[in-house]
Every structure is written in C-alpha cells, then in structure tokens.
C-alpha cells in the first residue's frame, strides 16, 4: 500500500498512467493498433503514426513547458507562428508570388533557417512584451495569434505555395533508404538539444526559481527578465521547427490550416504531463509523454470512426477529469474523506 502511494505521488505517474490507459483501450478494442508492417521499404502502423504525427505537438510542448514554468502563463501564438514560419520558408524558396515550383531559388538550408529564424523573431517579440513590459502572457501572445497567420498569408500572396522539390519533402516524410519517418528524428534532436541546454547549464534551475518567485530570484542576483525572454525565444524557435515539419509533410504553405489549434494541444500536453500551469517546477519528460498521449487519443478516436469534428468532446472530458483530479481542493477533500473513514474504522474496532 505504501509503495503504491509512493508510485502515485510521482509526477510522471499521471502522464504514464494516461498513456497506458489509452493503449489498454486499444488493446481490447482492436489489437491491430499495435501491428507494424513494412510497405515500400518504410514502416507502417498506428504506433508509428502516433510517433510520427505527434512530432509537432511534442516539439511545441517542449517550448511551451518552459514558457509555462517561467511565467505561469501560456503562449497561445505557437500555432500561428508555425504557419508564419512555413509561409516564410516557402516564400524564400519559391520566390514571392509564385504559386507552384519544382526548382528552388535559394539553397534549402537557407530557407529552413529563415523559417526557424522567423519563429525565433516571433518568440523574441512575445518575450520582450512579457519580460520587459510585464504584460500578461496570454494577452501578449494574443497579438501574434491574430497577426502571424495573416502575415503568413501576405507572404504567400493569399494563395497556397507548393514546393514540388523532392528534398523539401524529406523533413516531414522519409529520408531515402530510411524506414523511420524523419519527424521522429527531428523531435528527438530538438528534445536532446533542449535537455542538454537545461541540464548542462544552470538555465533549468534558473527557470524554476524565476517561475516560483520572480522577485526573489531577482534579489538573489538572477536576471529574471533575461531568463523569461530566453524561454519565449526557445518557444518561438520550437514553433518554427514544428512549422517546418508540418509544411514539409504537405510540401506547401497552407497558411489557413498549418498549426490550427495546435497551441491548445501543446498547452494540454503540458497540463497532462503533470506540470502546474501556475509556473515553477516543471518536468520536460512529462510534457513529451503528454504530447504523445494526446496524439494517441486522437489516433484512437479516428481509428474508432469518430469524425475529426466530434473528437474534441472526448478531449474536453479528459481535460476536465485530469485537472479536477489534480486540483488541490479535490485532493484535500479526498484526504479528509480518507481520514474520516480511518477514524470510523478505528472507532468500530
């Protein structure tokens, strides 16, 4: 009993438990969920699909976790920034106003760097507003939430720009001769870089201390504003990366649809990962597991034949259940009930 309590007290318990539950439902409902086959030299299967499609959410969740930890707020612009980065890249690669192209104007790497840099720029803008001007994160990022998608449309001259250039598709699909989808590698790379950054430098600890009490951290000699700014910058770069993957998947810049509602999934992933949305301590692994859990839920629902439009109902109920279980009020109520029961059983004895 004591050991069980120890396990349930762990921060990672909730996300792993949720993921396990989703997989269990699938096991009973349709065991073919776990089947993996090789067609045309690449891996196929629902599990691969979850890992592949969950890449964008996982990358976004990495950035979002830092933002939530440092400022107790959320960056709601990430979905729009994804779309802006994709449009920027396609504009640079195809040239302004070109609808479809099979040759690219500049080397691929420059285009992709441009997109990621655009993401970084957006992150810096958000960071400046939040860190320097002390504006509520949600409202500060509301500006880019509204504007970024619209600017992306301007970049693409209000149309969908197609890049029919084979290497551009590698990032979101498959590298030639490699059976594993590339987005999985991209995600792993992003996670490793950020993790190294957090573990090898003191940044991770700094972020926690600023998140717990920004003034105390300042008095202790930390540059709170700079640390907050850095987190938003990283979040923007992550959004740029996710935008690249999403755009490469469909080898075009579809400004209206890339990254639609992804900000909500990213925030959900953070909450699901057992992180408090009130800032402070954070657990990156939890967020990443949360991201794949969300994708697993989506894939499961789609596999069961629930339409994309109807899936949100289930998502909403899951969110409410999770946050209610996590809420301190509910926990203390549960504790009180348990104590009462203990007292009663003692009396009876």
């Amino acid at each position: 009993m004591k050991n069980l309590k120890k396990v349930t007290k762990q921060q990672l318990f909730l996300p792993i438990f949720c993921l396990f539950l989703v997989l269990l439902v699938n096991l009973f409902k349709d065991p073919s969920f776990f089947g993996i086959s090789i067609n045309n030299g690449v891996l196929y299967g629902r599990i691969i699909d979850v890992l592949n499609r969950g890449s964008e959410i996982a990358i976004l969740a990495v950035g979002q976790t830092l933002v939530v930890a440092v400022s107790a707020g959320t960056d709601i612009s990430v979905g729009s920034v994804m779309s802006l980065a994709a449009c920027g890249t396609c504009m640079v690669l195809a040239g302004f106003g070109v609808n479809t192209t099979s040759t690219i104007q500049v080397p691929l790497i420059i285009g992709i760097l441009f997109g990621v840099a655009l993401g970084g720029l957006c992150g810096a803008f958000n960071g400046a507003l939040v860190a320097k001007l002390k504006i509520q994160p949600m409202v500060a990022t509301l500006i880019l939430y509204t504007a970024a998608r619209a600017i992306g449309l301007l970049f693409c001259n209000n149309q969908i720009t197609y890049i029919r250039y084979e290497p551009y598709k590698y990032l979101g699909n498959f590298l030639p001769g490699c059976p594993i989808p590339t987005p999985i590698f991209v995600t792993i790379a992003v996670i490793i870089v950020v993790m190294l950054f957090l573990k090898k430098t003191a940044l991770g600890t700094y972020i926690q201390s600023v998140g717990i009490n920004s003034r105390a951290a300042k008095i202790a000699g930390l540059n709170s504003d700079m640390i907050c700014f850095m987190c938003y910058l990283i979040c923007g770069i992550c959004a740029g990366m996710a935008g690249m993957v999403a755009s490469s998947r469909i080898y075009c810049a579809d400004s209206n649809n890339i990254g639609l509602n992804y900000e909500l999934d990213a925030i959900l992933a953070v909450a699901l990962g057992g992180n408090s949305l009130g800032g402070g301590r954070f657990n990156m692994t939890g967020s990443i597991i949360g991201a794949y859990t969300i994708q697993a839920i989506t894939t499961t629902l789609l596999a069961m034949g629930v339409s994309t439009d109807q899936a949100p109902v289930v998502k909403a109920i899951i969110v409410i259940l999770i946050v209610v279980v996590q809420s301190p009020v509910f926990k203390s109520w549960l504790g009180k009930r348990q104590a009462k029961r203990l007292a009663l059983s003692k009396e009876a004895a």
């Binding site: 925030i267 439009d309 949100p312 289930v314 998502k315 969110v319 946050v323 209610v324």
Partner: peptide, 17 residues
C-alpha cells in the same frame, strides 16, 4: 480553483465538438 484558461479551453472543445 482550476485555471480559467484551461477550464474554458475544455468548454471550447466541448461546445465545438
């Protein structure tokens, strides 16, 4: 005491769904 943003986000999902 659940954050307004998360609660109403769930409401948003629910109503749209």
């Amino acid at each position: 005491n659940i954050q307004p943003f998360i609660t109403t986000m769930a409401g948003m999902f629910f109503a749209r769904g």
